[in-house]
Design a binder for these strands. Structure first.
Length: 506
RNA sequence: GAGAGAGUAGCACAAUGGCAGUGCACUAGACUGUGGAUCUAGCUGUUGCGGGUUCAAGUCCCGUCUCUCUCCCCA
């Protein structure tokens, strides 16, 4: 009788090779976020259910992992008449990193007025796993609280863009929309406010299922045909040729990435970026800068259509201002107005964004302004805006494109020992190597030395230190480079120096 | 939540309803202070699980579990 040893579906074990890549990626993200002045925060894996419920919309509530009451409390709850699912749990695994942040802001006393935090932690969703989709996955969030200034939007978008640029994933766009603008569009199309949510969900799928698909969706969800058609006309962006944009087809694609297969993957993987990388990025930005005008034109088009809706003026002005501000940030060239962008989460109130790339079906991350969320925990409302990168999806894209290059991990040296040397002497030698900064594994047994070398190869260790009676008596150590076969017997200090030299050379 | 496909050794895969196999990996030896190549030998199985049809089931049927893909939804 054996039990299933694979981790639960939608979760993964991370073996050393996986972790080497994950840590590398996380390090880049951390560094970029910190360069924008964000500071680290971590929160518990689980929260009170009341903290989580009602923040993400109905769909989100459904997907919350709930934790049952413990012990007696569960037994008592089960005995209550008419007990329902909701009465059995009081805690839930965090569903995202934004709601826990909002709770922290509402709870904490002496945070800076503008709290800029980043948070890289797992979140859990009781969802069905698929490609690039897990039940446990990592998000990399940045948020700025305490200001309504659109500088905050530009900064979070800029930081996210810098992460992608650093990693060599440049064929991205940031779709940009505004929750209030969406509401106005739906209103202008003549849809009743009750159908707002339904309509949002349907049009959010436009880029996946196409116009006809959305029409079908409208019908099945009981949205009146003429109003639906009006809405589609409002949100559909005219083809590029009819706009005054001098730019080429979009989304802008860097020549360095175009047609790139996994085979020639190393370029752009190294950090800091190479001169080529910088040049490619600069070209890309220059090309994309011309598109700024196209985005303004799209806003003009929407403004024209919404001339009769006074509530639309505010959000339109905000998007315009955001485009202007972002022109000075890394995000500028990547922003693209997309009136079909809706975003699933319930708490957004202002500008909303989503990172897209041809490399992945679905988004690589998203965010937006949520000025009401913190107020749900605290009497006074505190404005906030944030952006989240989907860690595993970014990782997936990088793996598919071979952008990791060679990320090394594991020990530098395997200390091999002949049977005529006491284990204690081997450990003393290992200590000396470790004090010199080398990562040293001691082979625990004493089979034939060749077997020990073979083991070193199998764990990708290139250097061997060999300790036998001969060396031990003379205070020496043999060192061998398993790649070249070069071997020397040297006094301990010289042997260490040689190992460090080899190790540095990679 | 809906639909389709797949489960055979650690991994990759074979086997017309008729003896469960091949490659890689692993272990040992050729080679007792020197690995990678080669050769030789060896090890690896409740064919996901439970039932049914059959003289006979990895193979056909039913159920179930798991995984993959598509849809839904999302990061």
């Amino acid at each position: 009788m054996s039990i299933n040893t694979s981790p639960p579906s939608g979760t993964r074990d991370f073996l050393p090779a996986d972790l080497a890549r994950r840590r590398h990626l996380e390090g880049v993200i951390r560094r970029v976020y910190e360069s924008f002045g964000f500071v680290a925060l971590e929160t518990p894996a689980f929260e009170n259910l009341s903290t989580l419920l009602g923040k993400y919309g109905d769909e989100g509530d459904q997907l919350l992992f709930r934790l049952l009451h413990r012990r007696d409390k569960l037994a008592r709850a089960l005995q209550e008449p008419g007990v329902g699912e909701k009465d059995l749990a009081d805690l839930g695994l965090r569903y995202d990193l934004t709601v826990p942040l909002a709770r922290v802001i509402a709870n904490a006393k002496d945070l800076p007025r503008f709290f800029k935090r980043y948070q890289i932690q797992p979140v859990w969703r009781a969802d069905r796993p698929g490609k690039g989709r897990y039940r446990e996955f990592w998000q990399c969030d940045i948020d700025i609280t305490g200001t309504t200034s659109l500088v905050a939007e530009a900064e979070v978008c800029g930081a996210v863009v810098r992460v992608f640029e650093e990693l060599g994933v440049r064929d991205i766009t940031i779709a940009l929309n505004h929750r209030q603008l969406l509401r106005c569009l739906i209103q202008a199309a003549g849809l009743p406010p009750a159908q707002e949510e339904t309509a949002l969900v349907a049009i959010d799928k436009l880029d996946k299922i196409g116009l006809d698909g959305v029409r079908k969706e409208f019908t099945t969800r009981g949205i009146e045909a003429t109003a639906g058609e009006r809405l589609l006309t409002l949100i559909t962006r005219p083809p590029e040729g009819s706009s005054p944009s001098p730019a080429g087809p979009r989304p802008p694609t860097s020549p360095a990435i175009e047609g790139k297969g996994p085979a020639d993957g190393e370029a752009g993987a190294q950090l800091p970026p190479t001169a080529d990388h910088r040049a490619a990025t600069a070209d890309h930005r220059a090309a994309a800068r011309a598109d700024h005008r196209a985005e303004v034109a799209e806003l003009d088009r929407l403004a024209g259509l919404l001339a009769d809706v006074p509530e639309a003026a505010g959000p339109l002005a905000q998007l315009r201002e955001l485009l202007d501000i972002a022109a000075g940030s890394a995000a500028g060239p990547y922003l693209r107005i997309d009136a079909t962008l809706a975003r699933g989460l319930g708490y957004y109130t202002g500008p909303i964004f989503e990172i897209r790339s041809p490399a992945f079906r679905g988004s690589l991350g998203g965010g937006g302004r949520y000025d009401g969320l913190i107020g749900m925990f605290k009497g006074t409302a505190i404005p906030a805006v944030g952006f989240s990168i989907g860690f595993e999806r970014l990782l997936l894209v990088m793996e598919e494109r071979g952008l990791f290059g060679s990320v090394s991990w594991g020990p530098d040296v395997l200390l091999c020992r002949f049977p005529d040397v006491a284990p204690a002497d081997a450990l003393r030698t290992a200590s000396a190597l470790r004090q010199a900064g080398l990562k040293v594994e001691v082979f625990p047994e004493t089979p034939k030395i060749g077997k020990q070398f073979a083991y070193a190869e199998s764990i990708k260790v290139k250097l061997a230190a060999i300790l036998g009676a001969t060396e031990a008596q003379e205070g020496k150590l043999s060192v061998k480079h398993l790649g070249t076969g070069e071997q020397l017997t040297l006094p301990l200090a010289a042997a260490i120096a040689r190992l460090r030299e080899w190790s540095k050379a990679g």
